[in-house]
Design a protein around this nucleic acid. Structure first.
Lengths: 282, 282
DNA sequence: GTGCTGTCATACCCGGCCGGTATCACCGCC
DNA sequence: GGCGGTGATACCGGCCGGGTATGACAGCAC
């Protein structure tokens, strides 16, 4: 069974990205011949050709494409491992929790209080970040746990514990005719003339095509709605962050959004496990 | 930024498992001194002590425990990367799909047919395995995709696409008084005198404590019920595998079970992506 | 065609590191 | 105080990763 060294994987990834041995070698800070040799050794060991060295250039083979994805994730994992070990050593009883600005702060408060009241409280450092940042910080070892939202955040590759499920609300300018309603449907807010629905980013940070403005945080949404330029949707707990210029109406047919505590699988840190247990009892 | 070589991680994991340098060295097939030195180098590079070398023995520090989990997953990832690259090379347009024996075969049939009818069909090799095996096979690169069941299978660390959501059914011996009912509740089947509910394993392959027999596949369940020694629950699609000695009654208050297509994240294999797209359109 | 340029592969050398042996320092224990 | 057993240290040798020089070969200009 062939063993892959991270050095080899680093070399392979760089070549795969550059598709050019000399440039890749330069980026790696080594000379080209040892790089060629390293790739050949890797190919021999795997018994697989990873690159087609054609007359005009280097291209990835199918197996090479597969290995590229795998190698990247192994390297990310290794870097994360180092970071986490160092963090665990520098502050053994502390955890970094990362969440989007605008996440239900009552829930967060409750979680922190429950942790503080528990038998063996961890020091929790709370980090706020933009949308979609949490997954990266969790993956690369800068954070231990995150508060995320299903189905809006990309939870692929994490373990999760559901904390709170809420309905979505529609947020309208306070003076709008529909603001007097006690409930709305998705179809209704999509059909408001001259008032498009603001679009949240998808998992991959792109936006669904459509007329509404692209937003990426709650403040932008609030501003746009207060200006009467859009309507928007958000989870029910966002009510507390609304202004007097806003009206919040439950969306009856919306999918529910669940706030979850997420952490990297295999993370068997005692502190994470304890916090998850605490969270599960909320 | 310190770089971890897989050799170092292998050494570290072995020492962490043995908690004994000499035995670990033996298992690794090297002598003890180089192993000690390698661990010291690792600790220096990370700036972290991983082991407490006490008078009576070696123990993991907190950071060491964290690194152990991380290191295992990195090593597993590296081994899986090698396997997947080799598999991709040996059969570029083929996929291995793994599922439990007893999974809804109409659904599988539909998926295979849709793939075959698609623009660029992959050769799909179907592998059957026992409960809880799928996750391992997916993780270690022996399979590319799996059919699994939420919430019964452990989906941590995978991307998934929901295929089919069903209710659970209670399965009783055909002659049982309750077999005439048109619906049942969980409480009712838990309270049947002298007829315990068979227990499925949990994610970690252990069983919830309780009176019922422990089962791990559908055939065992069927047999036990036919013998009148237990009742059981299963997803609605399991009806087709029942015998005349069985009666299936919908469970009205049960959680739903969703059959999902699961695959390792970062798997950017074209064939997997195509199959997922096909599945999403079912 | 003949250079010229730029690609990756090959040949060869050197130094560092990995691994081995021998030994030490230390502890627990009859 | 020997003795067995732990991990750490010292030192040495061979291998392998990295460097330089060069080769083989394609594309291109003329």
């Amino acid at each position: 069974m062939p063993l892959l060294e991270t050095r080899e994987l680093r070399y392979f990834v760089t070549v795969a990205e550059e598709l050019h041995f000399s440039r890749a070698a330069e980026r790696l800070g080594i000379a080209q011949p040892p790089l060629s040799r390293a790739i050949q050794q890797l190919e021999r060991r795997l018994g697989v050709t990873l690159f087609d060295r054609d007359r005009r250039g280097v291209t990835l083979t199918g197996a090479g494409r597969v290995l590229l994805g795998e190698a990247r994730s192994v390297l990310d994992g290794a870097a994360a491992a180092a970071r986490r070990a160092r963090r665990a050593a520098s502050s053994p009883r502390s955890l970094t929790l990362v969440t989007k600005a605008g996440t239900n702060h009552e829930l967060l408060r409750e979680l922190l209080d429950a942790n503080a009241a528990g038998p063996d409280p961890a020091e929790i450092e709370v980090l706020l970040c933009g949308m979609g940042e949490q997954a990266r910080m969790l993956r690369d070892g800068r954070a231990d746990v995150a508060l995320m939202h299903r189905p809006f955040d990309d939870l692929a590759g994490f373990d999760t514990e559901d904390l709170l499920t809420e309905q979505l609300i529609a947020i309208l300018p306070a003076g709008h005719p529909l603001a007097a309603r006690t409930s709305l449907t998705t179809a209704e807010i999509n059909d408001i003339p001259d008032l498009p629905v603001a679009r949240w980013p998808r998992h991959d940070a792109t936006y669904e095509p459509g007329p509404g403005p692209e937003i990426h945080d709650q403040l932008q949404l609030a501003q746009l709605i207060a200006l009467g330029q859009a309507v928007g949707v958000n989870c029910a707990s966002a009510r507390s962050a609304l202004w007097s210029a806003h009206a919040a109406i439950p969306l009856t047919d919306s999918p529910t959004v669940t706030t979850v505590l997420a952490w990297p699988p295999h993370s068997r840190s005692l502190a994470v496990a304890a916090l998850v247990r605490t969270a599960a009892e909320l």
